[in-house]
Design a binder for these strands. Structure first.
Lengths: 158, 158
DNA sequence: TTTACTGCAAATATTTTGCAATATC
DNA sequence: GATATTGCAAAATATTTGCAGTAAA
């Protein structure tokens, strides 16, 4: 897992550009949260992110975290996932572009699958729709659960 | 939109087979809910489904609906989506297999895109993982929102 | 100075859970 | 008859909202 194609600096720049274009205010909270997301490396939920920010000696409210994530999604820096549980997960878009997600619906475990393994044509055309980003979720069973299932069947003499 | 590849009868059979294999009870609620899902044709959320069931003169509790959807997912008849809002949507798996989803993140509108348009190789291999089903979400901007955006820019002399 | 943004807390929305009643096996 | 499943309501979880205070422009 990596912070992705973009550096933290590049992402700050994109965020700044977006806020200036939309005439939004450049608050310390927004930049701090973006940096914390980069440091988190990978998927995160709102509560995890907020804890991480606070651990880095910066106090933010939950409301500001929700607000900022929304903003970062609008700016095209963050994408949203809902894999399995009720908790919504987020991820840096530049990182998400490098992989798909394999989700085991027995244990809820998530694996990243390099995009080269399952190539989706980037030039697909959809009438009356302008694609910007896509997300592929592959559901199935991980080897651990497969093993557990086999042991279970054996025990039951199936 | 169609009820999918399978007929209602076939799906009842699959459900029966699954419940017998797992030694679960064949309750009226479970069969009724499955039939209502088939009649709904397309995406639905828990509350919509429950209303539909009740409108068809059958009383079920919310708990039973949640329970049954979970069961139907385990039986491989229903898949889960979370497109945009906080509301989780479900769909018959056999219907979901025929299309991907194009999601406009400006208005939240969802379009179905025939799978032939964006073909995902069915034979992909993932180490230590057995794929069973996949879901492709294409995010972007629908033509209505594109038009609205253009009008807005024009008004602001951009 | 203006007002967008934050923090806080309360409100809403959604899902899960405990337990008694019921229906399946 | 044994117990899985349901219904009901309460609890838990997640997100949104209102409003006063703060800080960016």
């Amino acid at each position: 897992m990596s912070a992705g194609v973009y550096s933290v600096e590049k992402m700050r720049e994109i965020l700044t550009g977006y806020m200036e274009a939309k005439k939004l205010r450049k608050t310390v909270e927004r930049y701090t949260i973006l940096e914390c997301i980069c440091r988190l490396q990978g998927h995160f939920d709102v509560e995890t992110l907020r804890k991480h920010v606070v651990e880095n000696h910066f106090s933010v409210s939950q409301a500001a975290v929700y607000n900022t994530i929304e903003l970062l999604m609008d700016a095209g820096l963050v994408v949203r996932h809902q894999f399995f549980s009720q908790v919504v997960q987020y991820e840096l878009k530049s990182a998400a572009l490098t992989h798909h997600h394999a989700i085991c619906h027995y244990c809820g475990g998530i694996r990243e699958v390099k995009t080269e393994k399952v190539k989706i044509p980037a030039d697909y055309k959809i009438p009356k729709f302008t694609p910007e980003y896509h997300s592929l979720y592959i559901y199935g069973m991980c080897s651990k659960c497969k093993f557990r299932e086999r042991s279970q069947k054996k025990k039951n003499n199936e």
